[in-house]
Nucleic acid binder design. Sequence first.
DNA 1: GGGGTTTTTAG
DNA 2: TAAAAACCC
Length: 478
Amino acid sequence: MQLVWFRNDLRLIDNPALYHACATGEPVTAVVCMTPGQWAEHNESEARIAHWHARLDWLETQLNQDGVELKRLDLDRFSDCPNALLELARELSVSALRFNYEYPLNEQKRDRAVCQALNAVGIEALGYHGDLVVSPGQVLTGGGTPFKVFTPFSKAWMKRLLQMDHEPLPSPFADKAVRPETGLPQEEVVGEFVGARSAREKSLSLQLGSANKHFTYPVDDTSLLEHLNRFIHEQEPDYQRLRDFPSRHGTSGLSPALTIGSLSARQCLAALKATYQDESWQSSTWLNELVWREFYRHLLVSFPGQSRYEPFRPEVAERISWLDNQHHLEAWKTGETGFPIVDAAMKQLNETGWMHNRLRMIVASFLTKLLRIDWREGEAYFMSKLIDGDFASNLGGWAWSASVGADAAPYFRIFNPQLQSEKFDPNGEFIAEWLPELRQLEPKERHKPGAGQRYGRPAPIIDYKAARKAALDDYNRG
DNA sequence: GGGGTTTTTAG
DNA sequence: TAAAAACCC
């Protein structure tokens, strides 16, 4: 018996652990560990956990149809995994446990402990790299050291990519007609990208949001692959032009799927490449964002101290004195700072579990540079709300914003919320969507701090110029 | 990716 | 002469 341990790789296509387990020809059992105590400690959001469970239900149905049973182990912490998996492995007379690596420190420790426990009684435990297009350790400087700066990393990453096979693995249960790149039956990839639902596949979706606003996240493969292909064909060509405007649908919206592994990075890359006739996919702005995802995961492996919030650039970190202002922190969390773009963004996060990337940078700069609240507060809050909360990317992004991360913005780069708002929400549409009180103002009036006070919006909690000066003075004082 | 200031460029 | 680009912190 082969045992496949699913974690944040809830997929059949391009899943090395599952693929190689099936390739043995032995019967296969799947297992997941429910560790709510650990999830709470990691600030995992309700939205992400609900999404993960919905996808797991879909996965279980699929596995069952192919004769694979899914065992759910009800545990609490990662430290409960070794014994529970050992017990199950013995019960099922398992010859090998297979899993795909996860890169945060606690996950690495958990996996090492599981391997030790199983190996001690002669059961094989095998890890695979399936989360990234190019695995950690495969992208190094000429001197053999890890990159700390994104641009040279991305060049070396591309060079490495072109040397290696990076096609996604097919589903071990796939019919012959299924193309591994997309998982869609070949004849239906051409033309419209709808893709017939295979008869045995049930559609499932996750609904989030309040009574008047619903947000649906599809969890079945047909819908996900349709989403991916639709994005690649219809939106990716305009990604560079539209991605920074929160009121436009310019981003892929694939991050929730990537973070629970219902889609893999290699599937995304393959879908992108398939639409280009030449080499120009290599300079895709969207691909560059996927490379950021790779960069932050590589960094987490090369510099594991980051998982414990050790500063990447101590010389910067020690010059900053964080302010402990619960009133400001609460206003930021609830979207009541009096800065319309910040408040609209936080309302979007709180209601939908998602925030547009441009806005993530704006609210992060606001919290860390203008309120001067410790970036780790923001990092934790984002994790507690985001449906796409991803430790490596979230950590990297926040440390970048606070200027204490790898290849971070210089400290003096402090976003001006009003200018950002005027530039990226020029008609105030995004603001109006999330702060309905401001619809009564002319679009040009919606950006100013304190806008809409007579309609119930709060006064600004800080003065921008004074806060900016205070931050720079503090930093320069050391 | 910011902002203040200087330099270059287009009209 | 004003706007855009370049420069530096």
